[in-house]
Design a protein around this nucleic acid. Structure first.
Length: 575
DNA sequence: CTTAGGG
DNA sequence: CCCTAAG
């Protein structure tokens, strides 16, 4: 439907050429790159699977599944799909994209049709069993066209604005979409098909238990289209099973596969149509979604004994894991102090409070070959570093399943990272000081804060609601935004008057000792803004109408002070 | 690490 | 706010 669909060869070419980074608005990035498409899904109440949005994926990345420990809230917060639909639609409207609605709706219907077709095909394929692979070539094309439509629809839903040039975002999105649109026919992505893996091994019913490692490896290759050197039988079986069933819900016990499905592993094809619409771009319900992969894993993990759970990161990095990992694991890189700054209390709270009793939350970490138990802590990286890391990783692996190198063992680069994180935050926990600290401090701030509130109504800033708004819609930037308080501004001004502009670290140390956040850079920036404001407003006092409504109205007194100081400083640069 | 500036 | 280049 208007979407350009490349032939299988095209897909392959794109795939091999690492075309993931290529972004074409309408030809739709064909991100079937990896032969294995892991779905990040959320399990709805009825057991059906709902694809994760890209935001969810990000969230999961960040918060991992520590939220999953809070089992009760999950159930409560679990939104029905219909409500998600509503919210998503409401979102659309509020985003002023009504013009798109008709189009979107029609497209959705269309997709439903397509999905049903696919479903049918799937059934046929199942009936014919071994003929799955010999399905007409156009079947693939049809499918991918469907997927492309999905992609576009989602794009419309989430981002009425033209596709951004943000490669990273795009990649994530692409991931999510490919996930959402993945057909029940899992491994049969065009790319995989083009590589013609030997499916003879994975067809029909297989009892992996009886296979020798060699055969398992073979099967692995057939399933994922790449070789593996892993010798762990259990691991192999799990991986293969997961690949075949396209699910992570793979108990270690029952490894029999029928028709590419785990026995008693109900498919979700019927939900596909819902999924199309249910993908909620809204950040609100994300709370409830956090556990998406979490619950499944955690519950399963218990049954799965010691088998390392395939977290998302694990899966992601497994592909690019290599021999060197062994060495890397030894050296635990301690996070920079910058990482620690801004250990958001919201995080801390969510762990210590929401999980109520501090159960010895531990998680298995495979380190240097053996698995160790470490205090469970989310490797949340709310602060910059995480993004940077991701960016770096992105630039290297660039979303696409990395080289076909297979993990040599259960461990990979992750544990080290994770571990360092754990160490870091673990100490924070031990000296649970940090948690209180901020609260106390913020109280201090509040005490001298019963000040005015302005149009933005934000004097509550600081301590309380720092919940980083999960900006849905366009701009995902601004990870943490704390509105500057009047008291803060005042402090800043007086700090500048005392120590002079430019002595940000001094000011921070002496006047902002209570505000853990607000780095010297922040102060500098704020001061710059204040200057700008103070000067922009003076020439003509009729600036009122032009003033931005969102920002705080800084009292004239302060503005005047600022200007005064500014002039003073400009005359005597250093003093 | 701290500043200064550009984005 | 974020990111970086420079002391």
């Amino acid at each position: 439907m208007g979407t350009v669909v490349g032939s299988v060869d095209d897909c392959r070419e794109m795939f091999e050429g690492s075309a993931q980074t290529r972004i074409s608005p309408f030809s739709s990035t064909n991100q079937i790159g990896s032969p294995v498409a892991y779905k990040l899904v959320r399990v709805a109440g009825d057991g059906s699977l709902v694809p994760a949005t890209d935001e969810e994926i990000l969230e999961v990345n960040e918060t991992d599944m520590h939220i999953a420990t809070d089992a009760t809230s999950q159930a409560e917060e679990l939104p029905s799909r219909s409500s998600q639909l509503e919210s998503s639609e409401g979102l659309l409207q509020s985003d002023n994209v009504e013009p798109y609605m008709d189009q979107v709706n029609s497209r959705l219907e269309y997709n439903e049709e397509m999905l049903q077709e696919v479903e049918q095909e799937d059934r046929i394929g199942m009936i014919h069993g071994s003929q799955l692979l010999s399905t007409p070539p156009d079947a693939n094309i049809q499918f991918s066209s469907n997927e492309n439509n999905l992609f576009n629809d989602e794009a419309l839903l989430q981002e009425p604005t033209p596709i951004s040039s943000d490669v990273q975002n795009e990649c994530n999105k692409a991931e999510a979409y490919s996930n959402a649109a993945d057909s029940p026919r899992e491994t049969e992505s065009p790319a995989a098909a083009s590589q013609k893996p030997d499916f003879s091994l994975v067809r029909g019913e297989i009892c992996l238990d009886n296979l020798p490692i060699k055969a398992l490896q073979e099967t692995f290759r057939a399933t994922f289209g790449r070789d593996t050197t892993v010798k762990d039988k259990t691991w192999l079986k799990r991986r293969i099973t997961m690949g075949l069933t396209n699910s992570c819900d793979v108990p270690t016990t029952n490894l029999t596969i029928k028709d590419k499905k785990l026995v008693a592993n109900q498919e979700k094809s019927t939900d596909m149509s819902d999924e199309v619409r249910a993908t909620n771009p809204s950040g609100h319900s994300l709370r409830g979604n956090h556990y998406c992969a979490g619950e499944e894993f955690s519950s399963e993990e218990r049954a799965a004994k010691r088998v390392r759970k395939p977290t998302k990161r694990y899966i992601e990095e497994l592909s690019e894991t290599d021999e060197k990992q062994q060495n890397d694991n030894k050296s635990v890189v301690l996070p920079s102090s910058k990482d620690q700054r801004l250990s958001e209390k919201s995080e801390v709270r969510s762990i210590s409070v929401s999980s109520g009793k501090r159960v010895t939350v531990t998680r298995m970490v495979s380190l240097a070959g053996s698995e160790i138990e470490v205090p469970f802590v989310s490797h949340v990286r709310r602060s910059r570093p995480r993004e940077n890391i991701m960016a770096l990783m992105e630039s290297h692996s660039s979303c696409l399943e990395a080289k076909a190198s297979a993990g040599d063992s259960n461990l990979n680069l992750n544990p080290s990272q994770l571990n360092s994180d754990v160490v870091n935050r673990g100490s924070v926990f031990a000296t649970s000081h940090n948690n209180n600290e901020e609260h106390i401090l913020s109280e201090v701030d509040q005490d001298m804060e019963p000040e005015y509130m302005d149009s933005s109504g934000n004097s509550s800033d600081d301590n309380s609601n720092v919940n980083v708004p999960i900006m849905q819609g366009a701009g995902l930037r601004r990870k943490h935004h704390r509105a500057w308080t009047l008291s803060e501004v005042t402090k800043l001004v007086e700090g500048v008057s005392k120590y002079g502009a430019g002595k940000w670290s001094e000011i921070k140390k002496l006047s902002f000792s209570s505000h853990s956040y607000r780095t010297s850079v922040d102060l500098k920036d704020k001061w710059r803004n204040l200057l700008r404001a103070s000067f922009a407003q003076s020439p003509s006092n009729n600036m009122g109408s032009l003033k931005k409504h969102g920002s705080m109205h800084i009292p004239m007194s302060i503005l005047l002070q600022v200007r005064e100081l500014a002039e003073k400083q400009s005359l005597v640069p250093t003093r």
